[in-house]
Design a protein around this nucleic acid. Structure first.
Length: 393
DNA sequence: TCTGGGGTCCTAGGACCC
DNA sequence: TCTGGGGTCCTAGGACCC
């Protein structure tokens, strides 16, 4: 029998801002950017009681909560405190921790539960330690698997501790609307509700198997099992490297101005290259994303012959993709993402092996692909320069 | 005043190879 | 005459999460 906790920091960004600015305390605050197109990243519980929610446009939030204070985000602080709270758990309790995101983690406390200390005791101890050492509150779900633990931490917030044992499912889980279930988003919820599947209990009900399978394709069985509290979801203790690194930005006003867009792509690509180097990784696929006035997103990607962390190459590829597909399109957002990543050291090992192979077999030079890339790049940059020049004529 | 930004995973279709 | 089947890789889009 496993004992799994899901620890979820309460209103994380907003709480960190309150912690660092006493003037914010006991007032409705929300963390967001400061442009007319910004949305709420996190709101404290006072603001939430007026109806302010994450992802809500700021102007709307201010409309429903007149005295709402907007705090500008300090991401480095969030990362620092995130690291501190997970480290604290490792030092004081256990290393069996999976970091799920900046403000939540799963902890396997099976080894800490015994005749003297119940799972609830352990959860309380962790909650108190985080509160006293860091000054932030969290909510904790306790169960025998990750899914139920996650549903537990959501059940009562802030400062909640909720068990989700098998015999509690009919009252604590099944009465909840489907939207509350992890992995049921807007699209699935709409589909399910159209077919009178309204609660998590409806998903757990065997009689609905047929309709669930019809609506959700292959995923239905997992959801059915989860809703019944059956899951063998293992914790992932590896500190995973990112699988993609991206950056995007919404313009203050929609634009088709190539110079403005080009400058933004260069800026985003520079930031990405920086992060790529920080993680000591190289990328092989570069993609560009745009969002048009009607919120439709389009992506274009190119996979290179070689892995790269070269700034120029990433910039030119991104610009080239934009120029090829979206030139003269009026857009509200542009983004650049690199994926197909590999760690530098594993690349080194591969190239050493490859060098040996070359020597022993007298293998012909593999430059063709590089040369093609370089010539493509030259073409792109020429076009970009000529376009840029046109603007100034 | 009108809707962010960072990710992960999955799927379907097409190209290509054997 | 007329066209298999398995596998991999790439791309684009979409759902979902925080």
């Amino acid at each position: 029998m496993r004992y799994i906790l899901h620890i979820d920091m309460d209103a994380f960004y907003a709480s960190v801002e309150e912690l660092h600015n006493p003037l914010y305390r006991n007032k409705p605050i929300a963390v967001s950017g400061h442009t007319k197109r910004s949305v709420i990243a996190s709101a404290n519980y006072i603001a939430r009681s007026c109806g302010v929610k994450a992802a809500m446009p700021v102007f709307m939030a201010k409309n429903i909560c007149r005295n709402l204070i907007i705090a500008y985000p300090h991401f480095h602080l969030y990362e620092e405190l995130s690291e501190r709270f997970t480290k604290l758990i490792c030092e004081k309790f256990t290393n069996n921790i999976e970091i799920a995101s900046i403000d939540e983690c799963y902890v396997d406390i099976t080894n800490l539960v015994n005749k003297k200390h119940s799972a609830i005791d352990v959860a309380k101890a962790i909650q108190n330690t985080i509160k006293s050492k860091i000054g932030l509150t969290c909510s904790i779900g306790i169960a025998n698997n990750k899914f139920l633990a996650k549903m537990g931490s959501k059940y009562k917030k802030p400062l909640g501790i909720t068990t989700m044992w098998q015999d509690e499912l009919p009252t604590k889980l099944w009465l909840q609307p489907i939207e509350r279930m992890h992995w049921i988003g807007k699209a699935s919820a709409r589909l399910l509700r159209e077919h009178v599947i309204n609660t998590i209990g409806d998903i757990a009900n065997k009689n609905n198997n047929y309709i669930l399978e019809k609506l959700l394709d292959k995923n239905w069985l997992i959801l059915y099992q989860y809703a019944n509290g059956n899951a063998n979801d293992e914790l992932d203790y590896s500190q995973n490297m990112p699988k993609s690194i991206g950056s995007s930005e919404t313009f203050l006003n929609d634009t088709a101005d190539f110079i403005e867009i080009k400058d933004k792509i260069v800026e985003l690509a520079e930031g990405i290259t920086h992060r790529l180097k920080y993680y000591q990784q190289k990328a092989r696929t570069i993609s560009i994303v745009i969002k048009t006035f009607d919120f439709k997103q389009h992506t274009k990607a190119l996979t290179l012959g070689d892995y790269t962390d070269d700034k120029e190459k990433i910039i030119l590829t991104a610009l080239g993709l934009f120029q090829q597909h979206f030139i003269q399109t009026t857009i509200r957002l542009v983004g650049v993402t690199v994926s197909n990543l590999i760690e530098n050291n594993s690349l080194q090992i591969n190239s050493e092996l490859f060098d040996d192979y070359q020597e022993s077999k007298d293998y012909p030079s593999q430059n063709t692909e590089n040369e093609i890339m370089i010539s493509i790049n030259k073409k792109f940059s020429k076009n970009i320069i000529s376009l840029a020049n046109q603007k100034f004529k």
